[in-house]
Amino acid sequence: MTKHASITLLTKRYNEFVLITERVEEALRESGIQEGLVAVISQHTTTGIAVNESLECLESDLGLFLERLVPEDLPYSHARILPSYGSTAGNPTGHLKSHITGNSALFPVVGGKMLRGSAQDIYLCEFDGPAQRTINLVITGD
């Protein structure tokens, strides 16, 4: 059996780590699936899905780490008008951070619960906010 669900949220800042663990667990409970896998997949190209420890200090370190790798003020090719959009693409850093972070996470489901380590939480990583974001969930199993 496979169930699909989605999480929609509004991010508030340009770069932001938003915890979504509880919302994934809620969707898992509603699915009724006891044994299998849950996939958490962002629908966007300037966000990431990351699994890490939910600590303020680590969020700060991760944010600064990505900023060092992808500085705002480099001369990016993506900084231009996109004719197919009719608007400027001012978000090359968002795409690059998304590329580094990846857009999905996968967890086993055992006994109706996500099997995750005690330090593991799931983040939507916003790299071009604020924005309305959708995360798709695929829960498959029995």
């Binding site: 509004l10 991010t11 508030k12 800042r13 906010g129 604020p130 309305q132």
Partner: peptide, 9 residues
């Protein structure tokens, strides 16, 4: 709410 978030940023 998104517009207001954008204004805030």
């Amino acid at each position: 709410e998104h517009v207001f978030n954008q204004m805030s940023c």
